[in-house]
Amino acid sequence: MDIATQSIDGGFAEPVFNAQTVFRAIMDAMARPGTVQNLPQLARPPAPLSATAGAVALSLCDNDTPVWLDPPLQAEASVKAWLGFHTGAPLANTPADAHFALIANPKEMAALDGFAQGTQEYPDRSTTLILLVDDLASGPSLLLEGPGIERTSMIAPPGMPRHFVEQCKQNNQRFPRGVDIILAAPGSLSCLPRTTRIKLMEA
């Protein structure tokens, strides 16, 4: 398939209702960190962008939101063309300029504090990270606490960044500044907002 077809195909079939479905899943996940929200396949972006991450981008990104792509996505012209055609979002030159960051390879990703953290006055001016993960259950178990969680919650995404728990702890300490994370797995997603305190569960 040539790049023009790839960039035009695979958007939402029902833009209004699909965007709402995806947003509600993200909103519920953000409000209840650690819960897994199931999502049907609504978008078909070119690889290595996944269907879930593509759908999240379609529902939240537009020409107001610079998007940063990690090197594996950056290298793929069809991904850039697809995002450009469907969302109109400009590409951010550095992680610190990004409103959203799409990360296909979380293991090798830049440090969380390299992204926009917001300011003490405007902590909302921070990057939301969309991490592509294989699933939400096969990695090391993370114990979650914080707003949105009644007692504790648990999630186990594989292939997370190096020193992820320690980085999240520092992210917590920067509150109200900090980044929020959307974990996009095939067919489901989950969120780790900056308020969620994460501990590694002992096996």
């Binding site: 965007a19 947003f23 529902s59 929020d180 308020t195």
Partner: peptide, 24 residues
Amino acid sequence: DEQTKRMIRRAILKGIAIPGYQVP
């Protein structure tokens, strides 16, 4: 319109992530 909804949705997500902070 959809662009307005996206803008408001982004504000809602920031609001949830920063409980009690007023997102413009």
